[in-house]
C-alpha cells in the first residue's frame, strides 16, 4: 500500500465578515484508500495537536446521499471524478506530491460561515416557495388509484434524486440555481399528482431563485457535469417550458 504526501492550499475564513485567505498545509502518509474528507480529518487531527484551529467543512453521511459536502477542489465542484460527491472521492485519484487547492462554493447566495462551510438555506427557501405537492396528512387517496406510467415515474425519480449539495451553483460560471430548481420542477410537474399546482409552483420557485440572488442560467451545462447524481440540464429546459405555459 503506497502512501503519499499531499500539499494543500485551503481557504480559511473566520466568519462571514472576514475577508479570508489561503493557507498552505502538507499532509504526510496519505493512504490511497482514504476518502478526501478522511485526508482532511487526518490533517485536522494534526492541527488540533499543534493547537491550531482545525479546518471546518460540512459533511454528514459520507456515503454521497445527504448532500452536505460540497468542496471545490482544484476549481471543480466535488473534484475530478464524475457522478461522485466529495465524500466518495478517494485519494487514489491523486499522486504523491500533488498540490490541491480547496475552496468553498463561491456564490453571493451561499455566504461563507467559516472556512469551507457555507449557508445554503437559499435552497430551502426555493423549496418552501413551491417545491411540494399540497396534500394534508390523511387526505391522500388509495395509492394505486392514480396509475403513473413507468417511464414517467422513472424520469421523475431521476430528477428527484437531487441531493441539494449546491455543486451546480458552485460550478456555474453565473452562480445559477437553475438545475436545482429545474430538477424539483421536473420531478413534480410531470407527475399526475403534481399537475394541479404546476403553474403556481413553477412561477413561485423561479421567482424565489431571483430573490435569493442566484445568477441567470447561460446554458453552460457545467452543472450537469459536476452533479454527483448526474441530473440532466433537460430539467432547465423543462422549467422554461413550464414557465411559458404558466405565464403565456
Amino acid at each position: 500500500m503506497s502512501t503519499m504526501t499531499i500539499n494543500l492550499k485551503v481557504w480559511r475564513q473566520k466568519n462571514r465578515n472576514d475577508s479570508g485567505h489561503f493557507e498552505d498545509y502538507t499532509v504526510e502518509d496519505v493512504n490511497e484508500h482514504m476518502s478526501f474528507l478522511e485526508m482532511l480529518d487526518v490533517l485536522n487531527e494534526k492541527l488540533i495537536k499543534e493547537h491550531i484551529d482545525p479546518i471546518e467543512f460540512d459533511y454528514d453521511c459520507r456515503e454521497g446521499i445527504c448532500g452536505s459536502c460540497n468542496l471545490v477542489i482544484n476549481g471543480v465542484a466535488h473534484g475530478p471524478k464524475h457522478k461522485t460527491a466529495t465524500c466518495q472521492l478517494h485519494m487514489r485519484n491523486y499522486k504523491d506530491g500533488d498540490t490541491i487547492v480547496i475552496e468553498p462554493p463561491r456564490s453571493a447566495a451561499f455566504p461563507v460561515i467559516k472556512d469551507l462551510v457555507v449557508d445554503r438555506s437559499a435552497f430551502d427557501r426555493i423549496i418552501a416557495a413551491g417545491g411540494y405537492i399540497s396534500v394534508k396528512t390523511g387526505s391522500a387517496p388509495e395509492a394505486n388509484l392514480i396509475p403513473v406510467p413507468q417511464d414517467v415515474s422513472n424520469t421523475a425519480f431521476d430528477y428527484a434524486t437531487c441531493i441539494g449539495c449546491g455543486a451546480c451553483v458552485a460550478a456555474c460560471p453565473n452562480s445559477s440555481a437553475a438545475l436545482f430548481t429545474g430538477a424539483k420542477l421536473a420531478h413534480l410537474n410531470r407527475l399526475p399528482q403534481g399537475k394541479p399546482e404546476r403553474d403556481k409552483r413553477t412561477i413561485a420557485m423561479v421567482n424565489q431563485m431571483e430573490i435569493e440572488g442566484f445568477g441567470d442560467c447561460s446554458n453552460h451545462g457545467e452543472c450537469e457535469a459536476v452533479c454527483p447524481v448526474g441530473i440532466s440540464i433537460s430539467a432547465i429546459a423543462e422549467m422554461r417550458r413550464s414557465y411559458m405555459k404558466a405565464v403565456f
Partner: peptide, 22 residues
C-alpha cells in the same frame, strides 16, 4: 398502508410496473 397512500400523493416516485401501478 396509510403511509404508502400519503407518500404517493406527495409525489414520492416509487418503483412501478408496466401498467403504472406500484
Amino acid at each position: 398502508n396509510l403511509i404508502i397512500d400519503q407518500a404517493v400523493a406527495q409525489g414520492v416516485p416509487f418503483g412501478r410496473d408496466y401498467g403504472g401501478l406500484l
